[in-house]
Design a protein around this nucleic acid. Structure first.
Lengths: 224, 224
DNA sequence: ACCTGAACACCGTTCAAGT
DNA sequence: ACCTGAACACCGTTCAAGT
């Protein structure tokens, strides 16, 4: 591993590799130096300190994820699906898939509060589709944000569930038939583990349907 | 601070106090020992190690948060609002408020993947309301889970945004009028910061409306 | 049953010194 | 401009020894 001179990019690459394999806790300045075959202190010259090294990794990840959705601010129809609602679902599915391939780095993006920033390109695609569905102005903006929050939120919940240890009480105990004698089918359904993919599509579809629907003369349940 | 004998609960109280004030990073075994006036190693006798100490704090928080919603598995109408939809919104609002008062501890709950566990009592309330709205069986279960995921997800997104550093590009730059010349009102709306409370209610209302609506003969946009 | 100090194996970071 | 080793001030944890 002899090398003429150390580069900031080499430091970032090695750090990313450590994080991808074993998570951020495994990223130690000393381990990293060993990996690079340099003195610990050389790293400081290139990246400042551990915290800004992690920041740089996160920054990189945000840019990579932003690039997966083709930019379409000036028109065009970059996504599959016949209706705007279908294409919104397609955006949602793409994001879901990509995120699941970089769990550690995405977790770090979350921890730094940059999840939303990472989704700005997706937001542009959503604007396009909501517009195509006929929404305009502030109402379109609300719809875009509601959909974006829902997609991102669902993914955050899902990540949360995956890292959950054994739960007590589990849903399966909580919802044994005795707990809901009046609707055993409901109890049985809640005792089964959720199917996230199905629930994801079902939820996004429901929200999109309501948001893209023509405004009712009086919205039901709009108490205030 | 002289004390006859150290208690596991005293350790937890002191630890919780440190975390509440300065976050989990400030919880050092040595600082904690100093706070308690004991040797560092005494703490190990009572709580095992740092990791299980943090686990215990999280466990406590989950129980506290679970207690804020009255249990209503056997009937009764514990929540304000005239319609089931209104009462679901009331659940959502309550959870949102309570979570915002314990930021550090809630963050630790998130990191351990226990957010969903924390919301099981709320799930029971949602079951009650969805049932009151006439949904049954698997369809009711899907609705409950979709609503639960949305509420939890929104809160996770919101937390994410709050911790976000200065963003580049900010939404306000991304959506300057030049970016969307065909709908300047939309661009202006997206350039303004989102109002989370409003968006939260709007989103939950939209989703609930769609989920509680009588099943359409053919759902629009249900492409597969 | 509970508490203690000493010791171990780690950390991130600073700094004066080298080339 | 870049790299180095030594040193500092921390960590969490173990363990033999005390009462």
């Amino acid at each position: 591993m002899a090398r003429s001179t150390l580069t900031r990019d080499e430091v970032l690459d090695a750090a990313a590799s450590l994080v991808k394999q074993h998570g951020p806790a495994a990223l130690t300045m000393r381990k990293l130096a060993a990996e690079l075959g340099t003195a610990v202190t050389s790293i400081y010259w290139h990246v400042g300190n551990r915290e800004s090294l992690l920041d740089a990794l996160v920054q990189r990840t945000v840019e990579e994820m932003g690039a997966i959705l083709p930019q379409a601010p000036t028109g065009g129809t970059p996504l599959a699906g016949r209706t705007p609602a279908d294409r919104i679902l397609s955006v949602a599915r793409t994001l879901r898939r990509e995120l699941r391939e970089r769990p550690h780095l995405i977790a770090m993006v979350h921890e730094r509060g940059l999840t939303e920033r990472m989704f700005l390109p997706a937001q542009q695609a959503l604007v396009h589709e909501v517009h195509a569905a006929g929404l305009r102005g502030a109402r379109a903006a609300d719809a875009v944000r509601a959909i974006q929050f829902q997609i991102v939120g669902f993914l955050l919940v899902e990540r949360n569930r995956e890292r959950a240890p054994a739960q007590s009480p589990a849903e399966s105990e909580l919802w044994d038939p005795a707990a809901a004698p009046h609707d055993p089918a409901l109890a049985r359904a809640l005792a089964r583990p959720a199917d996230p993919e199905r629930l994801f599509l079902l939820s996004v579809r429901a929200l999109v349907t309501a948001l893209l629907a023509p405004p009712a003369s009086a919205a039901p349940g709009a108490g205030r």
